[in-house]
Design a protein around this nucleic acid. Structure first.
Ligand SMILES: [Mn+2]
Ligand SMILES: [Mn+2]
Ligand SMILES: [Mn+2]
Ligand SMILES: [Mn+2]
Lengths: 219, 219
DNA sequence: AAATATTTTTAGATTAGTCTAAAAATATTT
DNA sequence: AAATATTTTTAGACTAATCTAAAAATATTT
């Protein structure tokens, strides 16, 4: 059996591997998990002996096939529970993550299958992140950071790069929610800020930082 | 903070206290929790130091006000999750308990409030057991074991005394499910077995043991 | 009341997961 | 190439939760 703690380490390694193609350093895991590096060394040895990761002293860790399946399934469970919390129980998108962190560890394949069916086999979670199917396949979607669109281009908000509470709160404030239609009205050369129309009426100018963290599907 | 293990001990003590009005013995807890008695001694000392139970060496344990609130809330969560699994995800009543054992430990009052609302504030779980409200109040229901009904009496199945898989499987087999209307046709003096009509047409004779474990609300 | 049986606690060990401080290995700068 | 800085591992300790075996306390039988 695999413990919740072990699962969390596998997930951390999985997530760090998305950004980075090289083996994941002990320090990087420590930072992600908010633990001491020495704790990580202990844990990667254990995970390695269970053949869930490849680990070489001083050279970092990568998931094995087995480890990858577990991590991917954890992501699947996390995101399906986020859908449930958002769609069914009407939590807001900034509230769902913390509860899903707990729910993702519930052990029952049947439960996840039935939850998936109940939710209508969603392909994306409330943050626009793709939900892998049972075999770990993700839907890929053509999307661009808002900062890469040109003036006059139109599209729909489909995802976000950052998931911090403060970013989510900002977006909520200005109604920059998933599914909103936007049009790029003007790009200011001076600081790369972007003036957009949100929905039918609202006009708002966002900084380059915001524009960089908002994913748009072009119409 | 209180750990899942501590919660499970509190629940065990709570449940044993329902049947028994005296302090709960270390051995009784050990049996319920399927652990060594020495492990229980360690744990009751810890729970006592946290003021969740009253414990005196060699004299047993009882819940404090604080411990009782936690245990009761755990029961509430367990039963609400069972409702969700049964009503919303269409699990059968013999499947829900094991998954609810895990779900009951999810920490979020907001989640339970919303789940309660979503389910329509149910008063009883899929086994007919009452669901305490936020303040720990249970609905009391006038019910009798089938074995206490007389010939010709009619009623509705509203609960069960035993919760074992084999008992649930038996009841399912003969359609003796919650909400079914029954009528006592004949009580056999010889072995106290009871011939009943189930619903409109079915006729079945149950042993005294079965009759004793089925709760009926008289019409 | 003494002997015997049962229950409960203590003693001592183990495992998972964590920490701090020191040592060792690797990377960077001079 | 040597000195310095950074990263990683080791050493040793701690807590929660568990166990077995032995000791102590309590209950039952004779
Ligand atoms: Mn999340
Ligand atoms: Mn998400
Ligand atoms: Mn149950
Ligand atoms: Mn139940």
């Amino acid at each position: 059996m695999i413990s919740q703690t072990e699962e969390n380490y596998l997930k951390a390694i999985y997530q760090l591997s998305q950004k980075n193609d090289t083996p994941i350093s002990t320090n990087a895991i420590a930072k992600q998990m908010q633990t001491a590096a020495s704790s990580v060394t202990d844990m990667v040895k254990r995970l390695s002996s269970k053949e869930l990761i490849h680990y070489q002293s001083h050279k970092g860790s990568t998931l094995t096939e087995k480890g990858n399946i577990i991590a991917c399934n954890l992501i699947r469970k996390h995101r399906l529970w986020e859908c449930f919390l958002f769609d069914t129980l009407n939590f807001t998108w900034d509230e769902v993550h913390d509860i899903a962190e707990q729910l993702e560890h519930i052990q029952s394949n049947e439960l996840i299958d039935r939850l998936d069916r109940f939710l209508g086999y969603p392909k994306f979670d409330p943050h626009g992140d793709p939900i892998p199917d049972k075999d770990g396949n993700f839907v890929v979607r053509e999307q661009y950071p808002l900062s890469e669109l040109s003036e006059k281009e139109k599209g729909t908000i489909v995802g976000i790069r950052e998931h911090t509470k403060s970013f989510l709160a900002y977006l909520e404030q200005f109604n920059l929610l998933l599914g909103q239609h936007i049009e790029v009205l003007k790009i200011f050369n001076y600081d790369q800020s972007v003036k957009i129309r949100i929905g039918e009426h609202e006009i708002h100018t966002v900084t380059q930082k915001i524009a960089n963290n908002l994913f748009i599907k072009k119409d």
